[in-house]
Simulated scan of single mutants.
Amino acid sequence: MKRRALLNSIVWLPLLQALPAVAAVDIHVYKTPDCGCCAGWVDHLKAEGFSVTVTEVADTSLTRKRLGMPERFGSCHTALVEGYVLEGHVPAAEVGKLLASRPKAIGLAVPGMPAGSPGMEMGARRDQYKVLLVDRNGHDTVFATYPK
């Protein structure tokens, strides 16, 4: 039995090391004080194991501009994680994929406030939306589509 456990650990250890350690990752969220859906998104990130720091700002567009996310991808909150900008209701699973793949990009964006996205739950309503990868030139490609 000990040999089987050793073999299993040899097989699984490299795979586990490749996963991002989300508990050690802090996401710094910039949001307005009265936004309930932003608080819902923060709760979603925490439930998925991320550490979250929140800074309340009067205008998130100033933060978006400072961090280099083009305004056309704007939503109700902006976040920073390990040098990447997260704009809007980006699912935690996609944040994990971003950190695992480390593309050369500004970050991820979910423009607008689509129903059914994390923090924008509206019962059974689930609007289709795209998580966009925004490259350093401000161009976007589809990173993920929801609902999956």
Rank of each mutant, 00 (worst) to 15 (best):
S51T: 14
L13N: 07
Y146V: 06
T145Q: 14
T141E: 01
G36M: 10
K104T: 15
H28N: 10
H28E: 14
L67P: 03
M113P: 00
L19M: 15
T53I: 14
M120C: 05
A21V: 12
K2S: 10
T141K: 01
V29H: 06
L108H: 02
G119C: 02
G68W: 10
D26N: 15
D43L: 12
N137W: 06
K31W: 14
G49C: 04
A18M: 14
C76Q: 06
I27M: 10
G68S: 09
H77D: 04
L45I: 13
R125L: 14
E56P: 03
T78W: 08
P147T: 04
G88M: 04
S117Y: 02
K65D: 09
V22P: 01
M69Y: 02
A124L: 10
R3G: 06
V95Q: 01
S51D: 10
A124N: 07
I10P: 00
Y84V: 07
S51Q: 10
G138F: 05
E121S: 07
V29Y: 06
S117L: 02
T145L: 08
R102E: 07
M69C: 04
T60L: 03
L98N: 06
D127W: 05
F50L: 09
L45E: 08
G119T: 02
G119Y: 02
P111G: 11
A23D: 12
N137G: 12
R102V: 09
H28W: 14
V85I: 05
K31T: 15
L7Q: 14
T63W: 02
M69K: 00
R4M: 15
E121G: 03
S117P: 01
E94A: 05
L13P: 01
S75I: 04
S9C: 06
G123D: 09
R126M: 13
D140K: 00
M1A: 13
Y84H: 03
E94Q: 07
T63H: 01
F73Y: 04
A39M: 03
E82K: 13
G68L: 11
V95L: 04
A115V: 11
T32R: 08
G119D: 01
P91Q: 04
R136D: 09
V52Y: 04
L98K: 01
D26R: 15
R3H: 12
A93N: 00
A115Y: 09
R126H: 15
C76W: 07
T32E: 13
R64F: 11
G83W: 05
D140H: 03
T53Y: 10
K97M: 07
H28C: 14
C38S: 08
D127C: 06
R102T: 12
H28V: 15
L133P: 00
K46C: 14
G40K: 04
A5Q: 12
L45V: 12
D43Q: 13
L15I: 15
A92M: 00
P91L: 07
S9V: 09
L86T: 09
F73C: 00
R136C: 10
A58L: 03
A100T: 05
P20K: 08
L99I: 09
T141D: 00
